[in-house]
């Protein structure tokens, strides 16, 4: 962009005297047109470097076998292998299962909590208390749950003391119990994220409409279903999208709590890529999986996210 203003300044020096002034004006006009681009350019270039470069790199690498030593071109070999790799499909499935259960639970809980909290005189206090889990490092939260369920066997011990089970529970050897631990840790830490947003949304709704409905004798759930919820739709959409992005990229908890096990039953797609690339050093294969994820991400971004964000800001 800065190049485009150079010819103008060249012209100004070439033509001395009177014409210097209009030339300067012309230059400043061009500069004015370029200014918004100049202002946004550094941020865009930085992001291109960190997204476009890796994208192109991953695409090229995905057509090669890259283990130790030099790259060996193998065409679509990595992609063909991925299509029949049950671990890859399993990872997609696990991500979907763990993610959707977690997201639905968080959304329902956060809506219910927000609904009860926003009219409460102590809403600020509730907000601070509910916020606390979100402010711990995710790696620390992962260890809390690892100790509670696995290493410390605290949960099993409590159940035993209550007389509900009569021995230790081997969470590690059950796929579903391991998934439940991941879901629980995510629900515990991130329901507050949705709660904070929903409370703000409910507080922002028109108090007079709510009051009028109340005076007409509408019950609380009628107000919630017919007034609050429709009004909240765009806010809920944006909040859920943001949460969904983070849930589908879940890595830390898997890395610390389950390592993807048992029997790859909790391996998310992020962990699959990490394991393929950085444990087995099969970088070409990991890149092929990355490219497929990248395509899915771009499709979802264009089809879902763009609509939700653009409409929420009119």
């Amino acid at each position: 962009m800065s190049n485009s203003s150079l010819p103008a300044s060249g012209a100004a020096t070439a033509a001395p005297g009177n014409s210097a002034r209009p030339a300067f004006k012309r230059r400043s006009k061009r500069l004015k047109a370029a200014l918004p681009y100049l202002l946004v350019a550094p941020a865009v270039l930085y992001l291109l470097l960190i997204t476009l470069y890796p994208g192109v790199y991953a695409i090229i690498q995905s057509f090669h076998q890259v283990k130790f030593g030099p790259w060996r071109p193998i065409g679509l070999g990595n992609y063909e292998k991925l299509l029949t790799d049950y671990q890859f499909w399993g990872a997609l499935w696990n991500t979907l299962v763990i993610g959707s259960i977690s997201l639905v639970l968080q959304c329902v809980l956060a809506l219910a909590l927000a609904f009860y909290a926003y009219r409460d005189p102590w809403v600020k206090g509730w907000r601070i208390i509910f916020l606390i889990p979100m402010l711990f490092m995710p790696s620390a939260v992962a260890f809390i749950y690892k100790l509670f369920f696995l290493d410390g066997r605290v949960f099993a011990d409590i159940l035993m003391k209550l007389g509900l089970v009569d021995g230790n529970i081997a969470f590690q050897s059950s796929i579903w119990m391991s998934r439940v631990i991941l879901i629980l840790a995510d629900v515990w830490q991130w329901t507050p994220f949705l709660f904070i947003i929903f409370v703000a949304g409910l507080q922002g709704q028109d108090e007079e409409v709510e009051e009028a409905a109340r005076l007409d004798g509408a019950s609380w759930y009628a107000i919630f279903w017919n007034i609050s919820l429709p009004m909240m739709k765009p806010i809920i959409a944006v909040a859920l999208i943001l949460r969904a992005i983070d849930i589908t990229t879940m890595f830390t908890n898997v890395f610390i709590i389950t390592k993807g096990g048992p029997a790859f039953g909790t391996e998310t797609i992020s962990y699959f890529i990490y394991r393929t690339g950085f444990k087995f050093f099969n970088f070409g294969y990991a890149s092929a999986a990355s490219v497929i994820m990248l395509i899915i991400t771009i499709l979802v971004a264009q089809l879902v996210v763009k609509r939700a964000f653009v409409s929420s800001r009119s």
């Binding site: 992001l47 960190i50 997204t51 990229t249 992020s270 890529i273 996210v305």
Partner: peptide
Amino acid sequence: FRYRGRDDIGFYILSTRMMAPAIVAVPIFF
């Protein structure tokens, strides 16, 4: 400012938030 391509640039910036870290992990490492 109002200019051509502004909304697309804005959305591009936003969309980088959607990129899973694992997707770019291998190239970024190299």
